[in-house]
Simulated assay, not measured.
Amino acid sequence: MMFDQKANTLLTLVQEGSFTKAAQALSLSQPAVSHQIRQLEEEFGIQIFHKDRKELRPTPAGAVLIKYARRALAVYNNARQAIEDSRSNLRRFTVAITPTVAESLVPQTLAYYCMENSDAHINIMTDTIKNIYDKLKSFETDLAIVEGKPDDSSLTSVLLDTDFLCLAVSPQHPFSKRASVPLMELKKEKFIMRSRPGNTRVLFERYLENNGETLRSFNVMMEIDNVATIKELVSRNLGVTVIARSACLEELRTGRLAVVPIENSSMIREINLVFHRDFSHPEVLDEIRRIYSSF
């Protein structure tokens, strides 16, 4: 099985952003790159890029071709890797996780799995939920561990854990001694929140909407995409946050954070293993669930 050279040229062109840079990256002449792109356009009967701008902007049909070229490259690379692994009796797969899941017991679970299975090699990548689903569908990742369930019928999910969002504060914060906190009291606090489109942020905003509120009514002084940074700032009593309880178990154990329920809140979410129906290592799913549940 060969990956079409023209498709490789197309993907390099998209990555580099210009014909000149793509030619340099491929050690080809610029006319040769242009010729391969024209061949693709003739083969599929489409125009891949808009002609009215200097920047490379794919047409709708061009975007479809680029998507499938990425998928074809991923399948080709997976086939090569699988053949190489079969020669060395190695099981290799890529697991994509969201930033919040990255702060939970999931990385530790995967590390224990590798320790118990010397023939396994796991590549962990962290990304947004949207990008993770895109990479799953293009076969750029084998397995995802994310909050919620996918809407795509081509993907299958298995429950790993049930989690919930709560208020996290410094042990020095007055709320740390409370059994719960009313939502209205939180309007006086300085929030450090996950950036959109993080699932934690979306779930909290949905809870506010169900209670006739919006995040604009609260003092969000910072938005950060890094969960570890948010926890560090909150532990120093520089603000409060809403976070998944599973993402701060270590900080709770060491006393660096305190979590407090928000009164009458029900921000429950599932953590799921998501994969294609033809995922080649189904036994891995049971092992991951077994190890995770042992903590």
Rank of each mutant, 00 (worst) to 15 (best):
M1A: 14
F3S: 05
K6M: 01
T9F: 00
L11S: 08
S18V: 01
F19Q: 10
T20P: 00
A22C: 02
L28I: 00
Q30P: 03
H35T: 01
Q36Y: 00
Q39G: 08
I46F: 09
I48K: 07
I48H: 04
E55H: 01
R57F: 04
T59A: 07
P60W: 09
A63N: 12
I66C: 12
Y68C: 05
N77M: 04
S86C: 12
F93M: 12
F93D: 04
P99V: 02
T100V: 09
Q108E: 13
L110I: 12
Y113K: 05
C114H: 05
H121Q: 10
S138C: 03
K149C: 08
D151R: 14
S154H: 08
L155R: 06
K177M: 11
K177W: 01
R178H: 08
K188Q: 15
I192A: 11
R194G: 00
G198D: 15
V202G: 02
L203K: 11
R206D: 12
N219S: 14
N219P: 07
M221W: 03
A228D: 14
N237F: 14
L238I: 09
T241I: 06
I243K: 04
R256K: 15
L257C: 08
I262E: 06
S266C: 06
F275C: 09
F279C: 13
E283Q: 13
D286F: 03
I288Q: 08
R289Y: 09
F295N: 13
